[in-house]
Design a protein around this nucleic acid. Structure first.
Lengths: 221, 221
DNA sequence: CGAGGGTTAGTTGTCGACAAGTATACAACT
DNA sequence: AGTTGTATACTTGTCGACAACTAACCCTCG
């Protein structure tokens, strides 16, 4: 029986990759675990073709390593998370500098709207929606500069970032719920930096934001 | 007949990707061209499986776009090249700053050795080897910081960079052969910056180097 | 001549099978 | 016992086939 499901826009491979990604990032799959295509195919009741796609996606994201026989889970240790934040810092600093030179008012409006929604979700304790908005904020910022190459870099890591944000936010909300205010504050600061063209404060604001993100996840895990 | 060729370490998919990549970067395949898996499979006398792999690789590199029916060649226009150089500048600036804080003497030795080899190739007019060494220089620099995430970013664009360098170098050598001296000079400057920890000159040296690369290719095409 | 509907060739996603290579367990031998 | 060789089970890379879907063409009708 061939199963073709066009009702869902994502191919089976991407769906499988999504499930496995969350497993790896959430440490449900521990680093070092060996996985084979057959084994995954059996679990998801598909053939090996979509599984191969999925493994290739995860390999590109750096979550697993494809070896001659079987793939091995790499996962994200503390160093990896730091590095992820460093690269995000690098890219978003670039983006903000570029936006300062030249931005469309629409973009700022979109960003403010996202923050406002985050505020509401924060008050309701809806961490899931909050984390998606957080992700969307940064993605909107990056897509805003319309830089093809940066776009590709972002696409190759965005799914990982999204997963990390989701998990971080969840843990944060389990602790002191009011912490979300800090995230919102730094986001507003980022917009201010763009609008006021305050070059001197870019590094300070962004470093603070990413440092906080990294530290909080490090403490929580 | 199943053809499995383990004598070459690269899978058929990667090999096909290599051929197509060069075609696209060298503008033998013009942007907008539609390509189908069957067509490529027929050309390379393989099944669609390796071709699918190849197309996915090229898609990740941003050279083609996968659509519902058929992929379309994107190629690298003048803007794309500028953006590529911008991202390289971003990454290598990061790398050099990190190396300044902490580098192993071995690395510097390797880099110097590469430059010396480039010098010899330059004198012999061996542009092919020269371009590979040029690429190797930058790759060695980036791998030197042992930063997993940066590594992945680099891997996702390195093949494209390599192709661009190859073509640029070829055209350069067709013009005034002596131009290679300038490339070598800036490379030596980069090493000096690392060794002398001369923070102030990083941006200047790198900007000069990448600006030159971008300008020269723009003029030549 | 133009518009609409059906046919048809072509496209991708998925499947199961096979070939080639690899690691492991187990037996035979020194 | 330790080493070597072989059988065997498991792995990936590739193949050809099929189902779902899309686009283009042609034919009919107004």
């Amino acid at each position: 029986m061939n199963r073709v499901n066009y009702s869902s826009s994502e191919s089976l491979g991407e769906q499988i990759a999504n499930v496995l990604r969350l497993r790896i990032v959430s440490k449900e799959s521990t680093p070092g675990t060996k996985i084979s295509e057959n084994q995954i195919a059996k679990e998801f009741e598909t053939s090996r073709s979509p599984v191969r796609d999925a493994l290739k996606i995860l390999s590109n994201e750096g979550l697993i390593r494809l070896e001659r026989m079987g793939a091995v889970v790499l996962g994200l240790n503390s160093t990896d998370l730091l590095e992820l934040y460093e690269v995000r810092y690098l890219i978003e600093t670039f983006a903000i500098k570029r936006l300062m030179e030249n931005y469309k008012e629409d973009l700022i409006i979109s960003l403010v709207k996202i923050i406002d929604k985050m505020d509401i979700c924060g008050k309701h304790g809806d961490y899931k929606e909050f984390s998606e908005l957080d992700f969307l904020f940064h993605e909107t910022l990056i897509k805003g500069i319309e830089h093809n190459r940066i776009n590709h870099l972002w696409n190759s890591m965005s799914k990982v970032v999204k997963s990390v944000i989701l998990i971080t936010t969840e843990k944060r909300f389990q602790g002191r719920v009011e912490e979300y205010r800090y995230v919102i504050k730094t986001h507003r600061q980022m917009i201010d930096v763009i609008k006021t063209r305050d070059v001197k404060h870019i590094d300070k604001v962004l470093k603070e934001h990413f440092n906080d993100g990294h530290l909080s996840i490090k403490n929580l895990l």
